[in-house]
């Protein structure tokens, strides 16, 4: 079910009651493909969807949350997420709007502050950017930042909440949900694989 000595890593997407949690259905397959392509980490071919309101979440120490719409965690969801982060889970949140003025960004930041504390900029020298591939300039820029969509900004860094020096919540306004949302077979048409950063994220989560 999960990554241990023999068990493969499972990519898990968080299902929450508000908003559109399933707005990036192609992301899991693409991330899984990248892990299998570049590493020897055993990985399950299919991802899973995990309810944020269920303790089942605790079985997946790395989870992915995305969406366009306003996010409001129920009390149960907030409690489960608070416990999850305290125990060592890592929540990766990506703003599918790529818009700092958007509803998703504003509301989910408020919810994260309520559950885990305020997000702060993650230095581009953080070990996350060297966990496997080396990203000298921090998080790789997405095509959606470059083409002027959303807030028309290139976000220089990611934000995070750290617990005991470890990333508990990683927050992106770079819209990786769109950037990685294509069929893995189409990677052959890219000059540079844009899912490499996902490998860093998974390797970091599995080792730190």
């Amino acid at each position: 079910m999960n990554a241990s000595a023999n068990e493969p890593f499972v990519f898990a997407t968080v299902q929450y009651d508000s908003g559109d949690w399933d707005s990036a259905p192609m992301v899991p397959a693409n991330v899984i493909d990248a892990i299998a392509r570049y590493t020897e980490i055993p990985v399950r071919p299919q991802g899973v969807t995990v309810p944020l309101s269920s303790e089942v979440l605790f079985g997946y120490p790395l989870v992915f949350l995305t969406g366009h719409l306003p996010v409001r965690f129920s009390n149960k969801e907030a409690d489960v997420l608070r416990q999850y982060l305290k125990r060592g889970g890592l929540l990766f949140v990506d703003d599918h709007n790529h818009d700092v003025d958007g509803a998703f960004n504003k509301t989910v930041r408020e919810e994260i502050r309520r559950v885990a504390g305020a997000l702060t900029p993650l230095p581009n020298t953080h070990e996350l950017y060297r966990a496997f591939f080396v990203f000298e300039n921090g998080p790789p820029t997405t095509s959606h930042e470059m083409n002027g969509w959303g807030d028309n900004l290139v976000h220089e860094h990611l934000d995070a909440v750290l617990f005991d020096g470890r990333i508990a919540v990683l927050f992106s306004n770079k819209d990786y949900s769109s950037e990685w949302s294509y069929h893995p077979d189409n990677k052959r048409f890219l000059s540079v694989d844009n899912t490499k950063f996902a490998v860093n994220l998974v390797v970091y989560a599995l080792t730190r």
Partner: peptide, 17 residues
């Protein structure tokens, strides 16, 4: 000395914490 996985991660975390 371990392969990447949740056991390695949380063994490290437990000891470091």
């Amino acid at each position: 000395l371990a392969r990447p996985g949740w056991e390695a991660k949380f063994t490290t975390a437990a000891l470091e914490e």
